[in-house]
Design a binder for these strands. Structure first.
Lengths: 355, 355
DNA sequence: TTGAAAGCGCTAACAT
DNA sequence: ATGTTAGCGCTTTCAA
């Protein structure tokens, strides 16, 4: 039996040779026609296109790129979580930044998603991924990349961009957590609070060095408030964590009059715990968070807002620059700002106001 | 100048031939060694591995797969949003379902992320993607796939799984929205409400046919309550939408005594609007949502819970079955259940209780 | 404007 | 256990 082109038996997918034969042209002409080469006769192109359509032909991206056609770039998007608003929102921005200015809606770069919740998954990503599924760039969201990991990727020629995490030795977009923390705590201090508690993250892997806690400490020091380790409790992410931590703070012989939570979702739980304890926010206890989560307004939560979507957009732009072979763009630190709402007030407001 | 293997000049990435030469073996032996073939001598493998390491060699996934090695599968994950808890959470489940039982943490399938917020993006996905970046399967989350789109994918041999959206003609995991809606509205009816409003989605593209509204209507009909179009307002997703919609409901000559919101995030805004209007929940107005969002508890929101993470896990499992060449697994409808909290109460409770 | 031929980098039969 | 030889499906010189 003569093998005259086409894939396998009658079932396989149509190949370029099938198209060529059906159109009555050579393989190369078919290829050119499909790739919009200028030097094919209009009529010929028509025929090829028709043949391709008729056969439901689709190129093999693998063969195509192997043969030289630099197909679309691929970027690995590495995130530790996805159910937290921050990450999802940032990824929405990333998508925008990656596609930006791309007239043709379909172009752009492909995003490979890597959900590396735990340390193990993360290590697996850095060891395994780049080697076997080649990506051209990686954007890591919300966590630190250590030197070994970084070198590994560099070696493979994949450029890295970091977003929403600690400032890295490579291009990154972030917010100044030290400053954000100070904005929150200073606000409390300015209000007159001296006994301020902190709900800090229990998972240092989340964002690298715990800058928010550091900010808390220095803010208090600067304000001349002596350190009290009891006032810092580390809690898991989320309302439950916040509630539990606040419970512990409330149980102290001298509870704080204000609390700084490392995230709105934690702050929300804290507010609830205060209310459950029969106390009021902000009359008895002030609470301030970070993020300006979409639901923060509902809870009337004072918070330090950070531009989450924009961090994604910027990161996407950086990736595009890198992909285009440009020089590593300078890192950017986006501004945060205090959003005053009803969860903070001067200490002892309980006795005075009755609003 | 003799071309004796190796890529381009001195700069290009090392190729398998370079490794082979350095290790003093043939190309195929090198390949076998790197692919853990059993029939290579331990010593040889060592040498090859060392050579590869020394040259920072990484296989070309394209060439590899072209040549026959069916590398890891790729699945397209198509979502309309990512900053909404539902989608992020479902994707976390998907990840789990896709990796399930995979001892080696790195194995599994690659996920290509497609964020198709608007109709245009979605159309682009269905027209363009399958053709140029081949994926082996696609899981569409939270929206309907029309027949043309479906056919297009089938043609290309990519199997589809639908999760968290309308029940499709292909394998899907969902929740019975009709039933979920009834659970919510029936609860209100049982409480004694007759004048019930609905905050329905303004974006029908989100989840296909608006089953939750349909449930609302039939529940009322079954309860013998006459239809009142004024009581259904369509609002955009989120707290702002909920607040605005509730505002409209409150502005009616005869406002409802209870409201069913199509999502907790909308319900939350509704609750807030009620409070801002100087009324109380649930004393003056009851509010019930859907999802059991992590923050629903904080807001003391009565809601109909759905297993979001699990929908993702199940979808992931289905994809694995399909990828393994198995028969299309049967669709699954996961159960929902009413979560009683403090945002609902019998009508007219305002006058009676003082809690 | 089109065809023929030579690979892209790798794997998988076949041989040995 | 290792080497040889065909390709995988496509793009691209090089010729015509």
């Amino acid at each position: 039996m003569v093998h005259h082109g086409g894939r396998a038996g009658g079932d396989g997918r149509a190949g370029l040779d099938d198209v060529a034969r059906l159109a009555g042209v050579s393989l190369s002409t078919a290829s050119r026609a499909l790739n919009n080469h200028p030097q094919v006769a209009a009529a010929t192109r028509e025929r090829v296109l028709a043949a391709a359509a008729g056969l439901d032909y689709v190129v093999s991206p693998d063969a195509s790129r192997l043969a030289g056609r630099s197909s679309r770039a691929r970027v690995a998007v590495v995130v530790p979580h996805l159910s937290r608003w921050f990450f999802g929102r940032l990824l929405e921005g990333l998508e925008v930044g990656l596609r930006d200015g791309d007239p043709d809606g379909g172009a752009g770069v492909d995003q490979l998603l890597f959900l590396v919740g735990d340390v193990a998954g993360r290590r697996a990503f850095f060891e395994d991924l780049p080697a076997r599924r080649r990506v051209d760039a990686a954007v890591v969201v919300g966590f630190e990349v250590d030197e070994v990991e970084q070198r590994r990727l560099e070696l493979l020629g994949v450029s890295i961009v970091s977003a929403g995490g600690p400032r890295e030795p490579f291009p990154s977009v972030t917010v100044d957590d030290l400053r954000a923390g100070r904005q929150a705590v200073d606000h409390l201090v300015h209000l007159g609070h001296r006994r301020i508690g902190m709900l800090a993250t229990a998972d240092p892997a989340d964002r690298g060095p715990d800058l928010r806690s550091r900010a808390y400490r220095t803010a208090l020091t600067d304000a001349g408030v002596p350190d009290d380790p009891d006032l810092v409790v580390r809690v898991p992410f989320g309302p439950a964590g916040g509630a539990e931590g606040m419970g512990r703070l409330l149980g102290l012989r001298r509870p704080p009059t204000a609390v700084f939570a490392y995230s709105d979702e934690v702050a929300a739980g804290a507010v609830r715990a205060v209310q459950r304890a029969g106390l009021r926010v902000p009359d008895d206890i002030s609470v301030v968070g970070i993020d300006d989560h979409p639901l923060a307004g509902l809870l009337d939560l004072t918070t330090v807002a950070q531009p989450v979507h924009e961090q994604g957009v910027v990161a996407g732009g950086m990736v595009r620059v890198l992909l285009a072979g440009g020089d590593p763009p300078p890192s950017q630190v986006l501004p945060t700002h205090l959003v005053l709402r009803g969860s903070t007030a001067p200490p002892g407001a309980a006795g005075r106001a009755e609003t």
